[in-house]
């Protein structure tokens, strides 16, 4: 279908964008790469009165190292980040996860921050942000705040972002020696929404494993070691409360948490630098 009607504002700066958001409340939507928003508009799932296009704000098209973190601006596309040396060097988890996101053509437009703001429970990037314990930077006319991944995504397609705020950057912890990362995903076809996606971070003493595609947001399990891994993953699989739907049964989802979970943890342990 075709999108409903809306006014269109091409913001030239963050200040202009947040001004428009402040003036329009929940009637405004931010457009970056548009790979989720445009599809929702075409399906008439949203009826905003104004679209604020931030894709042309060059100041938001960056990736930079800031201390122990890598900060990614809101206009940086998934394809562009994947090609950057900063990604290969400092973000091994994203280097593994990015090729799983959508397709060649959608990664060319889709942004890192747009995916986080959209907060789809089966998306790869919210999962990566959750398991690495990263954060997002929100800006409004009244100032800037930084929110941890765990506090940001509050449910399916919902976040702690206020109507007058926009997500201007994402911060992922920089990889350190001794930490390994794993990522696996099961989908019917490459690029489809994940039925189950798993990301893991392992260092000498702790293992974090996050599962997407089952609960309403990424769920993180923390393990001290691998001794009781099978039992912990089994309990986690039941706790997540998957249901039967057209894509998969709850039983398949639980099995995927056990098997993909174990594989991903083992991958993470195996590639500790």
């Amino acid at each position: 279908m075709k999108p409903p009607t809306f006014d269109y504002v091409r913001a030239e700066s963050v200040q202009e964008a947040v001004q428009t958001l402040a003036a329009n409340g929940d009637e405004a939507r931010v457009l970056a790469g548009g790979q989720s928003l445009m599809a929702m508009l075409n399906m008439r799932l949203l009826h905003p009165s104004v679209i604020v296009d931030i894709g042309a704000i060059d100041a938001l098209n960056y990736v930079r190292i800031d201390g122990d973190e890598v900060e990614i601006g809101a206009a940086m596309t998934q394809a562009e980040l994947w090609k950057r040396p900063e990604c290969r060097q400092h973000l091994p988890l994203l280097t593994k996860a990015l090729p799983h996101i959508g397709h060649w053509q959608t990664r060319n437009r889709g942004t890192i921050c747009g995916s986080l703001a959209h907060a789809d429970p089966s998306s790869e990037l919210p999962l990566c942000l959750a398991v690495t314990e990263g954060s997002v930077v929100l800006e409004s006319q009244s100032g800037r705040r930084v929110i941890k991944a765990d506090d940001f995504q509050t449910g399916m397609l919902s976040t702690a972002k206020r109507e007058d705020e926009m997500l201007i950057a994402a911060r992922f912890p920089k990889a350190r020696p001794g930490i390994g990362y794993g990522f696996s995903e099961f989908a019917r076809r490459h690029g489809d929404f994940a039925i189950v996606a798993v990301a893991a971070v392992a260092d000498g003493s702790t293992i974090r494993v996050a599962v997407g595609g089952i609960a309403d947001r990424p769920a993180v399990l923390r393990l001290g070691d691998t001794d009781a891994m099978d039992e912990m993953l089994n309990r986690f699989a039941w706790e997540l409360g998957g249901t039967d739907d057209i894509h998969a049964t709850a039983k398949l989802r639980r099995n995927l948490v056990r098997t993909l979970g174990k594989k991903t943890i083992e991958d993470a342990l195996a590639c500790r630098g």
Partner: peptide
């Protein structure tokens, strides 16, 4: 860059 023209205004 190859893109979806139905997801672009």
């Amino acid at each position: 860059k190859a893109i979806r023209s139905c997801l672009t205004l």
